[in-house]
Amino acid sequence: MRTVFIKNQGKLFQVVLKSINVPLRYIHTKESLEPVWRSICKVDSNKDVLSGEPLVKFTLISRSETEHIFTVRLSHAQYDGSSRPIILRDLVTAYNQDIHSGPVCATFPDYVYFCASNRSKCAFNFWKDYLQGSVMTMLPCSDLQANQVSADIHEIAFGDLPSALEDITIPTLINAAFSFVLASLTKKDDVVFGVVTNTRAIPLPRVHTILGPCINHNPLRARLAQVWSVIDLCRLLRDQYAQSQQFCHIEFSDILAKSTDWPSDTKLGCILNHLGEGDNSSLPLKGGGIISDSFAMGRIDLQDQLLIRAIPGKGKLQVQVLTSNRIMDSEQAGLLAKSLIDTANAFAMSPEAPLSSMSFLHT
């Protein structure tokens, strides 16, 4: 939380300060708390990450003696989804003044040191063999007309949660469905896209206690011409993902430089992020109060990239499509979100069906 990001001679540096002074901002309102909270989050999301100032910010919004929202602003470069319950637990511990109850934790520098120490030849050879002969799959990106302005696109679709197949998880099924949709959109049978990967599977003691961004954007390759049926594609992606886990800590920039012949400015054209529902349980506070976790996502700059968020719930699947109007408009993004849900359900219902018999479901 003491991190600041600065640029020096064209390079980006993360600096962890020894100490910071972050005053508590207090707001009293007579209005409903949630709209006020969301308005504050929207303004705070425009904070320049490279300002050189601490990104963490604490705000207490009160409506009465018993109605409060306590907001912690962070950059996603400082934490990941697994860090949220750690932050919540520490807030409760501090509020209850129970300073001796916390477990012994690993630190983010431990994680960084482990990753840097394990950038092995074996790891880079794995990614080189895996990506040999491939190219990054990019969706067409159009120049804006003179009367157009760049705009964010964010569309959401809801549908039935597909049934899991034997030995195939829901995220793997969605990976397979997205690879099929992407192949249909680009008319290619060999596609590469990014998957947001939790890197806490690395053999680092107490890695699950770390407060920090223990995630990576790893490339996932789907060669549809090598498989015959839906289940074959699911198994191929499942096995590839399992093999890549021991090397998931390698940064995409290093994979790009040391394991591919792609241009040095190559980006992940499409990124798929599997999110959980989150833990909405409440934790007790001294004095009879409770604290629960709510979350507001800030803006993400996606001028020439596509981000898909897949969020399974109780019998339902939510798919979010985030991009810019240089890639697609709102209607196309909405159709893409629905198409991914429909394709995942079609795959679940007919796992033995030939891929050639499946159609791109876009209506």
Rank of each mutant, 00 (worst) to 15 (best):
P284K: 02
E166S: 12
D293G: 03
V56E: 11
G289M: 13
R309P: 01
S120G: 06
L173S: 02
F126A: 03
Q78N: 12
K187D: 11
Q14H: 11
L306K: 00
D98I: 05
S82L: 11
G278D: 07
I231A: 01
A146Q: 09
L88H: 10
S39D: 13
L317M: 11
L33W: 07
P162H: 11
M138D: 05
T323I: 06
I61N: 01
E251L: 15
M358H: 12
A164C: 10
V104C: 05
I291A: 14
I153V: 15
S282Q: 04
L256M: 08
A146I: 14
I271A: 07
L17H: 07
L91M: 14
Y111D: 01
P85Q: 00
E53G: 04
L144W: 05
I156Q: 00
F114H: 05
S75W: 04
F252D: 03
R25I: 15
G287F: 11
R223F: 14
I341K: 03
Q320P: 07
H274P: 02
V181C: 15
H217M: 15
S184F: 04
M358S: 05
Q320S: 15
V135I: 14
D110I: 02
I168F: 04
I290L: 06
L302N: 00
P205G: 09
S75L: 06
C105V: 10
I20C: 11
R89N: 13
L60Q: 06
N118H: 14
R119E: 15
L60H: 01
C122L: 14
A225K: 10
F295T: 09
K314M: 10
M349W: 02
V192W: 00
R73Q: 08
D342H: 09
G159F: 06
D239M: 14
I27G: 05
S294T: 09
K18V: 08
Q243Y: 10
D265A: 10
I86N: 02
N21L: 05
I174T: 00
A201S: 13
V49W: 00
L237F: 07
P140F: 11
V16D: 01
H362P: 01
S359Y: 10
L268P: 07
G133R: 03
V15Q: 10
L182G: 01
Q318G: 13
A353Q: 12
S184A: 13
S294D: 12
A225G: 15
D301E: 08
I255M: 08
H362Y: 12
P109K: 05
I202P: 00
R89I: 08
I231W: 03
V207N: 02
A222M: 03
E331T: 14
I99R: 01
W262A: 04
T343N: 06
V56S: 13
D129R: 09
A310W: 08
V43P: 00
W262T: 12
E331F: 15
L335S: 13
L50D: 07
H76L: 05
A353R: 13
A106E: 02
V22F: 10
P354Q: 08
S282G: 10
P312R: 02
A183Y: 03
C41Q: 05
F178K: 00
M358W: 13
S83I: 07
W127F: 15
I202K: 02
T29M: 08
G269P: 00
H249S: 14
V22S: 05
S339Y: 12
